[in-house]
C-alpha cells in the first residue's frame, strides 16, 4: 500500500497521503514518523519516488528566478520599491534597472519608472529575512504600457501557462492578444479581445484542478469569439 489517495484527489491539511518509507516528501506536504501528510487544501500528485500537494490558494512568496509583474510604489534616491502582490515588497536598485551610467544627482529616476507604473521584473535574490532584490536585466523584463492586469491565485499560474506554454499560446492566438503571466499571479493582457482573454484566464484558474482543460478552453474560446462577431 503506497498511494492512499487517487491522483489529483482533493485533500485537506492533515490528510495522510502515504506511509511508505521510500517516498520523498516534496512541496506542500510534511513527513512525521514515516508518514506523509498534506499541509494544504489542494490536489495530490504522486511521482515515482515522491509525493506533493498542489495548493488551491495562497499568497505569493517571492522565490529567486521568478519573473513577476509588479507595481512601483515608491521612488527613492537610487532605487524603487515594487509591490508584488505578496506579503513582501521588492526593491529594484538603479544598477539592476539600466546598464547605462546614471548620475544620481542629475538624472531623475522617475524618467525610468514612476509610482504607479507596472513592470515585468525578475526576482534576483531573496534573503532569509525576506528582503527581495529585483532586476530588470533580463530579456523578459520591461515596463508595461497600455493593457490591463488581472489577478489570479499564484498556485494556478503553471496551469494558465500550460505545458510548454500551450495554454497561454492558445489564448494569445485565438483572442489575438498578448498575455504575460507573472509567477506572482498577476496577468497582463493587451490586444484585440482582452475581455475574452481575461475571462479565459479566470476560467482556467477556476477549473485548474480538472482534466482535459486545454481542449475545453479552446472550445469555449471559439464559442465566445463567434458570438462576438454576430
Amino acid at each position: 500500500m503506497s498511494r492512499l489517495k487517487d491522483e489529483n484527489e482533493i485533500v485537506a491539511p492533515g490528510d495522510l497521503l502515504t506511509d511508505e518509507d521510500d517516498v520523498r516528501p516534496s512541496s506542500g506536504v510534511y513527513a512525521e514518523k514515516g508518514k506523509i501528510y498534506s499541509k494544504f487544501i489542494g490536489t495530490v500528485k504522486y511521482g515515482d519516488d515522491y509525493v506533493r500537494v498542489q495548493p488551491m490558494d495562497g499568497r505569493y512568496i517571492p522565490s529567486e528566478g521568478d519573473v513577476v509583474i509588479g507595481e512601483v510604489t515608491r521612488v527613492s534616491y537610487s532605487r524603487w520599491n515594487v509591490d508584488l502582490d505578496s506579503p513582501y515588497e521588492g526593491t529594484l536598485n538603479i544598477s539592476e534597472a539600466s546598464d547605462q551610467y546614471v548620475d544620481l544627482d542629475e538624472d531623475d529616476l522617475t524618467d525610468f519608472y514612476d509610482v504607479g507604473d507596472a513592470v515585468v521584473v525578475k526576482v534576483e535574490s531573496v534573503s532569509e529575512s525576506m528582503d527581495v532584490d529585483l532586476t530588470m536585466l533580463d530579456d523578459r523584463c520591461r515596463k508595461l504600457e497600455e493593457g490591463r492586469i488581472i489577478n489570479i491565485s499564484p498556485h494556478k499560474v503553471p496551469r494558465v501557462i500550460g505545458r510548454q506554454g500551450t495554454m497561454v499560446q492558445q489564448i494569445n492566438e485565438k483572442t489575438n492578444c498578448h498575455v504575460i503571466v507573472g509567477q506572482n499571479g498577476l496577468v497582463w493582457i493587451n490586444g484585440e479581445n482582452p475581455s475574452v482573454a481575461a475571462e479565459a484566464v479566470k476560467k482556467v484558474e477556476r477549473e485548474a484542478h480538472t482534466d482535459g482543460l486545454t481542449d475545453r478552453i479552446a472550445e469555449w474560446l471559439d464559442e465566445q469569439l463567434e458570438g462576438g462577431d454576430q
Binding site: 485537506a12 491539511p13 492533515g14 506542500g28 510534511y30 501528510y37 499541509k39 494544504f40 487544501i41 495548493p55 488551491m56 490558494d57 495562497g58 499568497r59 491565485s153 498556485h155
Partner: peptide, 8 residues
C-alpha cells in the same frame, strides 16, 4: 485552510 496557510 481556505487561505492556503500551511497547516499540520
Amino acid at each position: 485552510a481556505d487561505a492556503g496557510i500551511p497547516m499540520k
